[in-house]
Amino acid sequence: MKRFIISALALLMLFALVAGVSAQATWKPNKPINVIVPWGAGGSTDQITRLAAGELEAALGTKLVIVNQPGASGSVGTKSVLDAPRDGYTWASGAAADLATYGVQGMLDTDIRKDWHVYLSVANVMVISVNASTPYKTFDELLAAFKKNPGKISIATAGMSSAGHIGAELLKRYTGIDYKHVTYDGGNPAVIGTISGEAQVTTQLAVEQADMIRGKKLRPLAVLSDKPLTLQGYGTIPPVTKWIPEFESGPNYFGIFIPKGVPQEVIDTVDKAWAEVIGKSKKIQEYAVARGAVFAPSFGQDAQDKAFSYYQPVAWLYWEAGKAKVSPDTLGIPKP
């Protein structure tokens, strides 16, 4: 520990010196960086994080090792990042909205604005789909079934506060339906749970369902947005506003998070790499087109603002639905 402090001080002094000469010091990592994906393999966070990590490797000159550490809606993995040494070698990933609402849910005492540097890459939309062998052909039919059997039809999600759960809660708010919430370790396990027939409906993200929709194992009924979604190899999924015109939901941003307290040059270097590499990444753009996501890179205050636009209503949605433990007000998230 002593050695760490000494070396940290030395680095700091060095940085102060160099800062006088040039504006920024570059960080040259000397060992692999661990990126914790706090969800199961194959889900939305896993997909985009692996892709972004692959793009960043060359720019940072080191390996980025992806570690899946699922549990409790990503709070288990996120906690281990917070507990790790703040040396810049352990990063978190996921949806900004999750990170921002752990506090509201009482799952983890962390604040996205105070504790994290946020780097966003894509925005995702939720799709409501059913197992292909269920009788529901349209959103209308599913809605009627929900109303007829309150609390009986199961919706598979990646857990409390996951994107899928937000989708299900939004549906509940606009239609008054009651559902059986079945949680999994991630978006991919939730989708698999739906195609295995264990659950009937899923409200997870388009990127997680894309393959199964194309494989005709899932039947998409509506995209939870005001615009239709065109998926390569399938066609167009109608927007939910076709049935519920007042439905409102913004883009759910995903990215990589570095805890505050790491050396400044880490942040400078990653900022630069994010702007130059991720901001122009062909691979991520292609991924977004193929799987129904939106390419939306940002970092710094810009990213914090974008994330806020989505998690603010979500935090209040939980609170009003009685699913939150702490009022968003007390955490500095004003009512929209």
Binding site: P70, A72, V76, K79, Q105, L108, M160, T183
Partner: peptide, 8 residues
């Protein structure tokens, strides 16, 4: 022991 996997 530790944080459980559904409600944290």
């Amino acid at each position: 022991i530790g944080m459980e996997g559904i409600h944290a």
